[in-house]
Write a protein that binds this DNA or RNA. Structure first.
Length: 239
DNA sequence: GCGACAG
DNA sequence: ATCTTGTCGC
């Protein structure tokens, strides 16, 4: 893993890092046998831009879909949230959580964009390179690009998302009559395979179940952290 | 210059 | 991302 990919000094440096990473990312399938699939997500306190983030990675066996214990960490991010630079805020904590897993998963779903990014370097691309794992970007809204034709109303229907003449994502209807989600390749996963995997992992709900597990685990971590802070404050009321 | 803007 | 309650539809 390249440490200099995690800590740019300025946003201008971060832009250069993203260009470098995007050039290193692979957009053809090199997934291999998937025995463990995982998703990651973060949670943080409402309107607290400089407080800690709680990151979780939730693994599960595949294809039997047995959830394994999630790994979670709490860290103070080096960046506030800035559109286009989400990876620099959240990736360090996710990498730390990933390193706690007893076995590295073979595929990682990320809550955010992959190549559907102004510099083709969303958080899923960054995590794929940092962790050396195939990744898929799963976003609930778009950062850039436009949906050419709205996808049909049936689960599995899709429409390309085009940014500056390039198809960077698919607007994917994962549940009938629900708003589409935006799926893009991260590292070593083609757009088509990304959509296939996401549909395979959608159990009748809008979001794939690994993403929901990761979301729940990150929220559990945040609650545990807040409870512990409250407990410490109660034990030392004078300080 | 203005607007748009993952989580 | 996050808070909160009710409400609507299958």
């Amino acid at each position: 893993m390249r440490q200099d990919w995690l800590n740019p000094a300025t946003l201008r440096d971060a832009t250069a890092v993203q260009r470098d990473m995007a050039a290193s990312a692979e957009q053809l399938d090199r997934i291999g046998t998937v025995r463990l699939v995982a998703a990651c997500d973060t949670s943080s306190k409402w309107r607290d831009t400089r407080g800690p983030v709680h990151a979780a990675v939730a693994p599960a066996t595949w294809p039997d879909a047995t959830a394994l214990p999630a790994a979670a960490v709490t860290q103070t991010p080096p960046f506030p949230y800035v559109p286009g630079y989400l990876g620099f805020r959240e990736a360090p904590a996710i990498v730390a959580a990933w390193s706690l897993l007893p076995q590295p998963p073979d595929l990682l779903l990320v809550d955010g964009q992959g190549r559907a990014h102004p510099r083709r370097c969303g958080i899923a691309v960054q995590l794929g390179l940092l962790l050396d794992v195939p990744t898929i970007g799963v976003a609930k809204s778009l950062l850039c690009g436009t949906v050419e034709d709205e996808p049909g109303p049936t689960a599995g229907d899709r429409a390309p998302v085009v940014d500056r003449g390039e198809t960077v994502a698919l607007a994917l209807r994962t549940r009938a009559r629900a708003a589409p989600i935006y799926v893009s390749g991260g590292h070593r996963v083609s757009l088509e395979s990304a959509a296939d995997w996401v549909l395979r992992l959608c159990d009748g709900r809008r979001l794939p179940w690994p993403i929901r597990l990761a979301h729940d685990a990150a929220n559990a971590r945040r609650r545990a952290y807040m409870d512990q802070v409250a407990e410490t404050a109660a034990e030392r009321p004078e300080h």
